[in-house]
Amino acid sequence: MDRLKELVTFIAQSLVDSPDKVEVREVAGEQTAVLELKVAQEDLGKIIGKQGRTAKAIRTILGAAAAKMRKRAVLEILE
């Protein structure tokens, strides 16, 4: 499951101004993994995007990565 965490970390770090403040925590369930993403307060908008477009795109990519591993994954963006 580390691949999912790395994937989210890479995307988030590439989008924000403070990549060192990006934290991804994984709460693994049996079928579903929950990835909790935390970024600097000022970067929150960059991760979510206009009308949540960026967040939606990240979720789609994460979903595909999980599907490849026959898993499900949920992305939670923490405020």
């Binding site: 995307i11 590439s14 989008l15 995007g49 960026t54 795109a57 789609t60 990519i61 595909a64």
Partner: peptide, 18 residues
Amino acid sequence: GEMIKSLEYIVGKISARA
């Protein structure tokens, strides 16, 4: 084509920043 669109969007964002 949802995935292509998402990749396009994210890659666009990342490269525009860089």
